[in-house]
Write a protein that binds this DNA or RNA. Sequence first.
DNA 1: CCCACAAGTCGCT
DNA 2: AGCGACTTGTGGG
Length: 163
Amino acid sequence: MQKIVTADGEFMARYSEKGLAELNFPARGRARAPVGRHRGPAGKTSAKLRRWERVTKAALMSILAGRAPEKFPPLDLDGTDFQIRVWHALLKIPTGRTKSYGEVARAIGKPKAVRAVGGACGANPVPLLIPCHRVLAANGKIGGYSGGLDWKRKLLAREGVKA
DNA sequence: CCCACAAGTCGCT
DNA sequence: AGCGACTTGTGGG
């Protein structure tokens, strides 16, 4: 687990052999679950990994500033087929734009799976890079957010979205 | 197996 | 304008 220090707190990133596998919001308040220190494959902290870390941090900083990242690190998404599809659809939402859960559901060809889309968003292992925060309820309301609604509002505000 | 959920639409009052 | 039922995928009792 690598710390990524930003003005908004310390994010935690976890990488697999294939790319960024997980990103966590700053642990507020109480100490974080130990989860054991995650040593990469012993020995070489490959140049690959360091490159990912650099790109990830840059991308994160951009998003926190309300701008579109220039580059994305490779993502190693672990989830069900349905979830992967949802996450991919989310990646296509441009900065400063929003979609409703219903639109996302239609985008993946399952217009009635609206509710399931919400679940998939909550299961998103890489928030911010996969912009769950740009998904609003159909009536333009804020909806929910796994990282806390304050985060969702803050991020949208920085992107210039008026909810 | 039944329930809840970051939803949405339809039908009925 | 509000309420109930049905819809899908997933995780927990």
